Amino acid sequence: MIPFLDLKAQYQSIKPEIDAAVLGVLGSTQYILGDEVAAFEREFAAFCNVKHAIAVNTGTSALHLALLAAGIGPGDEVITVPFTFVATVSAICYTGAKPVFVDIDPVTMCMDPTKLEAAITSRTKAIMPVHLYGQMADMDPIMEIAKRHNIPVIEDACQAHGAEYKGKRAGSIGISAGFSFYPGKNLGACGEGGIVVTNDDKQMETMRMLRDWGQSERYHHVMKGFNYRMDGIQGAILRVKLRHLENWTESRRSRAKLYDAGLAGSTRVTPPTQVADRRHVYHVYAVRSPERDRIREELTKANIQSGLHYPIPVHLQKAHEDLGHKVGDFPVSEKVASEVLSLPIFPEMTDEQVKTVADAVNNGGQRIAA
């Protein structure tokens, strides 16, 4: 069987480092925040080329705190996209604000800047582009529009660790950005985890208090906060993994190139587009096909796992029917959602495994002998 993701292989490749890091935290008894989390914050901030990083318990919490620190609250509107994981929209809803959608670009599947300005109203208080599947949104026009209207931009970089736009790292362009360390992410914890990054000193101070019950110091609660703290063990594990992330990223990118070659000229699927001015880190290798469901069934029969990211856009999810959207409101997102299929991709994947998957896609699930 070819798995969609192989976390066991990753763990085995760095087992001594991970085990030592975990035992170190157990010995220190710094189970919540602590020295390992603080060190990881410094190292991840440097990785993103920003001043500050605030480690939290999930990527959703990171986005939530970024919105709160930007002053978002009830009655406000935040513009984002409907083709994303639901957590993007949930974080907006947690603040009491209303999510306002703009459709996506059909090539990158990220926010379409040409549709952005029409969605801005007097209540728009933030714009949240999503760097989908490991490739960044077209940030220059988004930032230009935001600056013209004096609206902060918060990057949803939960799938974009190490991605770049014109040489700038994900998380370093907007006023802040949220990342997820869910285990399947390019940089994944052994459990839940997230982080928010910023260059703004005041935002950093606010978010540090908000993640820890609104405390300025122990038992001095200056605002209503949350229990969003990162565990010490996760901080230690993420420090180890961060040292390997660039090598893992280049391995993902090389797997993607092999897929590109194997699927070039395919009559069944369209491979993802690597935009020239961006560094795609391939959190997901998502092809598109009108016969997506059939291909997925063929792969399953060939013992090849695959994924769907995401088959129902957020505006059509029952949980968000209160927003009042209907089929046809965001046609590009809806079409893409009906066609995307995520193929296996992970750093430890072999050339032969990539070739096997590509051959199976091209040949109706039949494996071609090497």
Rank of each mutant, 00 (worst) to 15 (best):
D156R: 05
D156N: 12
C158F: 01
Q159T: 13
Q159E: 14
A160Y: 01
A160V: 06
H161P: 01
H161I: 08
G162M: 06
G162T: 06
A163E: 05
E164H: 09
Y165C: 02
K166H: 01
K166T: 06
K166G: 00
G167T: 00
K168W: 11
R169G: 07
A170V: 03
G171H: 02
S172Q: 03
I173V: 11
G174Y: 04
I175K: 06
I175C: 14
G178I: 01
G178V: 01
F179S: 04
S180H: 11
F181C: 00
Y182I: 10
Y182W: 10
Y182P: 09
P183D: 02
G184T: 14
G184W: 14
G184S: 13
N186G: 02
N186D: 08
N186I: 13
N186H: 14
A189W: 02
C190S: 15
C190D: 13
G191Q: 04
G191E: 00
E192C: 04
G193Y: 01
G194Q: 02
G194E: 01
I195F: 05
V196W: 04
V196I: 13
V197A: 01
V197G: 04
T198W: 11
D200E: 09
M204W: 12
M209N: 10
L210P: 04
R211V: 11
R211G: 06
D212Y: 12
D212T: 12
W213D: 15
R218C: 14
Y219K: 11
Y219L: 15
Y219M: 14
H220E: 15
H220T: 10
H221S: 07
K224F: 15
K224E: 15
R229Y: 07
R229F: 08
D231L: 13
G235K: 10
G235W: 02
I237A: 07
L238V: 03
L238W: 05
R239Y: 11
K241Q: 02
L242Q: 05
R243W: 02
R243A: 13
R243L: 06
R243G: 14
H244C: 12
L245F: 03
L245W: 03
L245Y: 05
L245R: 05
N247W: 11
W248R: 11
W248Y: 08
T249L: 08
T249D: 06
E250Y: 09
S251L: 10
S251A: 13
S251Y: 04
R252N: 03
R252A: 03
R253W: 06
S254D: 05
S254H: 09
A256K: 00
A256Q: 04
A256P: 03
L258K: 06
L258H: 00
D260W: 05
A261Y: 08
A261D: 08
G262M: 07
A264T: 12
G265E: 07
S266H: 09
T267P: 10
V269C: 05
V269G: 02
P271N: 05
P271D: 00
P272L: 10
P272Y: 02
P272H: 06
P272R: 12
T273Q: 07
Q274W: 10
Q274K: 14
V275D: 15
V275L: 13
D277S: 11
D277K: 11
R278A: 04
